[in-house]
Amino acid sequence: MTRRTVFLASGLVLLALVPPIAAALGQPFYVDVFRRIMIFAIAAVSLDLILGYGGMVSFGHAAYLGIGAYAVGIPAYYGLHNGYVQWTIAVLASAAIALVIGAISLRTSGVYFIMITLAFTQMLYYLGVSVEEYGGDDGMRLAARSTFAGLVDLRGGTTFYYVVLVLLVLSLGVGHRLINSRFGMVIRGGRSNEARMRAIGFATFRYKLVAFMIAGAMCGLAGALLVNHTEYVTPEFMHWTRSGDIMFMVILGGMGTLGGPVLGAVVLRLLEDLLLPSWTEHWQAILGPFLVLVVLFAKRGLVGLLPERRDG
């Protein structure tokens, strides 16, 4: 193992220690903070699969957060709280929508791709705003967290925390297998040199589309977690600034690495939610330049500042 791998593994161990430390400090609120961070980390890891490894600059990834959230919220509205059902819907519906969005947007590239993915997510956002039954603009409360009879009880904040942690670790594990598999090599090859890929015989479109669906599904799961975390669902989950947030986590932490998006989620969320707002009300004016500096001077993100390792 390289030093960077060790560093990232210890980061996960630290995350595992958050609940006892928070309890010892008498600050249970940190369990909430880091649970939310990890949920966004899953979303960021899923985006990095297509953005960092696949070179697909999707500027609409928050769509799947919203789909995952409504896939929990709408059944709950009708009294169905079974988590197995809700989360399965969240994953499948996200994959299905990603199939549709990907099938259209992946025929374009560059700025067009960015704009089309953004446009689709805006459509979903306005759909959420317009459907009054589910609270429209205001959103709606989640009557109860997803239930997993006999397995876990998410009402316990710490239990829920560890569920999220396990899912984050699983996402990283799945991501790791994926990017190093034959499929992953095709995705990375497509980012590196599309013309070369086609010349050696890869019809890249279908691989990209499947990667797009996998990323959507994984982010849909993050959406299901997020609605359980906030116990509220609103179209804001799909707002374009949310897509931008997730993308910044990836870029800040380091595209094309698995640890990067997690680190990016931790740093960005802590800065945005805790540190900067408590120092100054003009925190956004600090955050902006900070991100620009990272992009300019740490081209490979914060992870790039850690000791090198050879591959993802």
Partner: peptide
């Protein structure tokens, strides 16, 4: 097929 998602390609 390259729709193989699990086994590491570099060890193949």
């Amino acid at each position: 097929s390259s729709f193989a998602f699990w086994r590491p390609a570099r060890a193949d």
